[in-house]
Nucleic acid binder design. Structure first.
Lengths: 153, 153
DNA sequence: CTACATTCAGCAAATTTTTCTGTTTTGACT
DNA sequence: AGTCAAAACAGAAAAATTTGCTGAATGTAG
């Protein structure tokens, strides 16, 4: 790491706050001219520091989707079983995020389903069909109090 | 809701996939000309359907930050206590996401701290100082298997 | 000191954004 | 169906940005 100089870090910070900021504005704030900013943004993209750009959509205004956090405990902790589970679970459309974690559980999933029926179908028709899934504990999101996807870097 | 027609939804879908897509490209894919697309994007922004645009940065490549999911159970479930907790906890820099949920716990927090010391300082110096915090259960993220912030709408 | 590589500013062409105008479509009402 | 007003649209043109290029400045190794 830290082939990243202050200008690189500044770009990452600013584009996290507003991905549609123009190169000209980036240049103004970082006290550089446009061309080096342009080249650096391209470099950050091509070298995987920036994985993409996304619009943050107000889900509650735009759909009836329901969000849940679901914890998975495996009943087989072999490397093969864990890898197989990961490989399969991330393919499900409703699984938006998947983390392997320390503690009582093995995985935390963020699930977004179009409605309660879809959520039920996912849990019973897809998730529970995967091998070696032990306990499944779900927490439905009642309200999103904060969601800030910018990280301090 | 559903002042949203298929073009609105198409814009939201496409900008979730790539927030830097040009209006011209949006227009081409949605089979419209540029000006209505331009007007609609502006409308979606001003009416809160699009809350912002963010670059997705590879945290592991760009920093040493550690991520944790932390569950909070309150020992006072009055409206005042819950509201007060929400109001305070979202102000902490390390709290990137906060959800009020059903189930055994009351809140799920996504915490991102610069390092283990920062994380410790947050837990013991900030979080546990808030009133009415009962049990706190933390899960450190060992690996991020999937993180897709686009939602099907 | 020189040669080389890297980073940069400034310029210019290509492209996009943004505004404006006039036309078409939509939808409500007769 | 026919009429009207409002909304949505396509196209054009000006303003701004993106993108590639050139040559200068800076730093480094020989």
């Amino acid at each position: 790491m830290s082939k990243l100089d202050p200008t690189h870090l500044g770009i990452l910070r600013l584009l996290q706050e507003d991905a549609r900021m123009t190169h000209k504005e980036l240049a103004r704030r970082l006290r550089k001219s446009v061309s080096p900013i342009f080249e650096r943004v391209k470099w950050l993209e091509q070298n995987g520091y920036i994985k993409g750009y996304t619009a943050l959509v107000d889900l509650q205004k735009s759909s009836n989707s329901i969000i849940s956090y679901t914890h998975i405990q495996m009943n087989d902790h072999s490397e093969e079983a864990l890898s197989a589970f990961q490989r399969e679970v991330v393919l499900f459309e409703d699984v938006r995020e998947c983390y392997y974690i320390t503690g009582n559980f093995d995985f935390i999933l963020k699930i977004v389903s179009p409605d309660m029926k879809g959520y039920n179908d996912f849990l019973r028709g897809q998730l529970s069909k995967l091998p070696n899934v032990g306990s499944v504990q779900s927490f439905l999101v009642l309200s999103e109090e904060k969601r800030d996807t910018t990280y301090k870097i």
